[in-house]
């Protein structure tokens, strides 16, 4: 049978065979290995990406926990500061009270000492005045006695 355009079935089959061999060969030698390599590389980078994301998430969690801790620590510090201030105030009050008590004691002691001293001085002064008065009286007496005696003696002699 004369096929139009000189189509030759045998040559069509030969072309098919040739093309099948080429396609299969190219698939085995080029397409499959290169695609496998590309897939492996994509997988590798996907793994890296996943790991990076996981690490980022972990870092974010860590950051959040550190921030939380930092906040807690700050609150604790604030509380401790407030406690310390109260304690310091208490201690200062105590010291002040003690100092006042001490001062009052010192003052009362000083007062007592001053009163004792005054009393002593007064006593001494009284004694001294008494002594001086006595001495003066004695002297007066002495003076007056010796004059009378002299007068008597003189009178006696005259007689």
């Amino acid at each position: 049978m004369n096929v139009p355009l000189n189509i030759d079935w045998q040559q069509i089959l030969l072309h098919l065979l040739n093309f099948s061999v080429l396609t299969f060969g190219l698939y085995l030698l080029l397409y499959k290995p290169v695609k496998t390599f590309m897939d492996e590389r994509a997988k590798h980078y996907e793994t890296l990406d996943t790991q990076a994301k996981e690490k980022l998430e972990e870092a974010e969690k860590l950051e959040a926990s550190y921030n939380r801790r930092l906040k807690d620590v700050e609150t604790e510090i604030e509380n401790k500061k407030a406690g310390a201030a109260v304690e310091a105030k208490k201690a200062a009050d105590l010291i002040l009270r003690n100092a006042r008590q001490q001062a009052e004691g010192l003052l009362s002691d000083a007062r007592e000492a001053a009163q004792d001293e005054r009393a002593k001085i007064l006593d001494d002064s009284r004694q001294e005045i008494a002594y001086m008065a006595m001495t003066a009286a004695e002297k007066l007496l002495e003076q007056s006695a010796s004059g009378a005696l002299d007068q008597f003696l003189t009178a006696v002699k005259k007689e």
């Binding site: 040739n18 093309f19 080429l22 060969g25 030698l29």
Partner: peptide, 22 residues
Amino acid sequence: NPAFISALVITAVLLISAAFIR
């Protein structure tokens, strides 16, 4: 037809090149 010989030549060249690359 000459085109079939062309097809064979191309197949040979491509497969040999692919084998070298592989």
